[in-house]
Design a binder for these strands. Structure first.
Lengths: 203, 203
DNA sequence: GTCTATAAACAGATAGAC
DNA sequence: GTCTATCTGTTTATAGAC
C-alpha cells in the first residue's frame, strides 16, 4: 500500500464522516461524499465496496470517539463528585469540537439498534462498579442515596442534550451562535454544580 | 368533502406519521406509507401532492404535540418547584405514549432548522417571563440563584434524553424493556427530586 | 375518489480504459 | 489507483381508465 493509497483512503473516510454525520445514512449521497473528497464516485467503491461498508467504517470510528472515554472515567477509582466534574468537562469539550455527533449517533442507533452491538464490542462496561461505588458513598454519608442509573442518566442527559436540541434552545431562549457557545461553556460548571448540590447531604 | 374523503386523509396522515417518525424523512418510502394505510401510492399524491407536503403536515402535527404543552406550563403563574414537577410528569408521560417522537423531531430539525420556524409560528414563547420569575424567587430566598436557561435546559434534558438514548441506556445498564419502562416511570419523581434538592437554599 | 401502468429522475454499483 | 461511461434497481410523481 503506497502513501497515496493511505491518503486517499483517509480523505474518503474524513469526507464520509462529514457528510454522514450531517445528513445521516439515508440522506447522504455517495456523489456528495466523492465531491467533498475531491475524487470520483467510483473510487469510493474501490476502497469501501458499498455505501453500507463505508458507513460502518465511519460509525465505528465515531462510536470509539464517543463512548470509551466516558466509560473509562465512569469506571476509574475516583470519588463520585470528581467523576461528575471530569465527565462534564471532557464530554462537553468533545461535543463542542464535534457538535453534530450526538444527534447523528443516536439517530442511527435508533434506526438500527444492531449497529451498536455490531460496531462496538467494547460496550462491556461493568455498570456494577458504578452501582457499588454510589451505594458505598451513600452508606458512608458522603452523598445522598440515589440509584446509579438515574444519577448517570441525569449527568449524561445534561451534557449531551443541549447539542441535540441546539436549534430549539437557541430559538426558545433567543441566543445567537456566540451566546450559545458561551452557554455551553457555562454548562461545564453548571452541571457539576447542580448535581453536587443535589447529592450533598444536609449538614 | 365526503366522510370517506376525510377518513382517507386522516388514515394517510396517521400512517405517514408512523412511518416518518420511525424512519425519518429520508428513510421513509411513499410505498411503505401507502401499504400501511392500506391504499394505493397514487392516493398519497392525490391528497398531499408531494412527499414534502405530506411530511410538512406530519411535522406540524408533531410539533404542536410536543411544544405548546410545555410552553404553556413554563409560562403559567405557579411556583418554580411546581413547574418542575408538572413538566416532568406531563412530558415523560407524553413521551411514554410516543417514544419515537423525540429523536425524530430533533433529527429533522437539525437536518433542516428552517422546518422549525416554518411549521411552528407559536414558537413565540416569552422566555423573559421565566427569567424574571426565577430571579424573583431567588431574590426572595425561595430558591438558589441560577440562570433560567440552565435550569430549563437541565429539566428538559433529563426528561427527554432517556428516550433519545434508550437503546444505549438499556445496553449500558443491562435493562430489558420492562426494566426500562420502570426506570422511566421512576424519573417522574427522580427529576423533580434532583432539581429541587439542587435549588433548595441551606437552612 | 381510487386504481393500474408508466414516465422521469436518481442513486448505488460495475465495466473497462488509462 | 483513478477516471468516464453505463447498467440496474429504486423512488417520486403523473397519466389516464374506471
Amino acid at each position: 500500500m503506497t502513501d497515496s493509497d493511505k491518503n486517499t483512503e483517509k480523505t474518503i473516510l474524513l469526507s464520509a464522516r462529514k457528510i454522514f454525520t450531517i445528513k445521516g445514512f439515508d440522506g447522504a449521497r455517495m456523489q456528495e461524499i466523492a465531491d467533498d473528497a475531491g475524487i470520483n464516485k467510483a473510487l469510493l467503491h474501490y476502497y469501501y465496496r458499498t455505501k453500507d461498508k463505508l458507513f460502518e467504517a465511519v460509525f465505528k470510528e465515531v462510536l470509539n470517539l464517543i463512548f470509551p472515554k466516558i466509560i473509562s472515567i465512569l469506571q476509574s477509582p475516583i470519588p463520585v463528585f470528581e467523576k461528575i466534574e471530569k465527565i462534564s468537562l471532557t464530554y462537553i469539550e468533545m461535543l463542542k469540537q464535534n457538535p453534530d455527533l450526538a444527534i447523528f449517533v443516536f439517530h442511527e442507533i435508533s434506526r438500527n439498534p444492531r449497529r451498536l452491538v455490531e460496531n462496538f464490542r467494547n460496550a462491556g462496561i461493568d455498570f456494577e462498579i458504578i452501582r457499588s461505588q454510589i451505594s458505598l458513598e451513600a452508606a458512608r454519608g458522603i452523598i445522598v442515596p440515589i440509584k446509579a442509573e438515574h444519577l448517570i442518566t441525569n449527568l449524561i442527559s445534561m451534557c449531551v442534550f443541549p447539542f441535540i436540541a441546539k436549534p430549539v434552545l437557541k430559538g426558545m431562549m433567543g441566543m445567537d451562535e456566540e451566546a450559545f457557545q458561551q452557554f455551553i461553556e457555562e454548562r461545564k460548571s453548571v452541571i457539576p454544580h447542580t448535581l453536587i448540590l443535589s447529592l450533598t447531604p444536609d449538614k
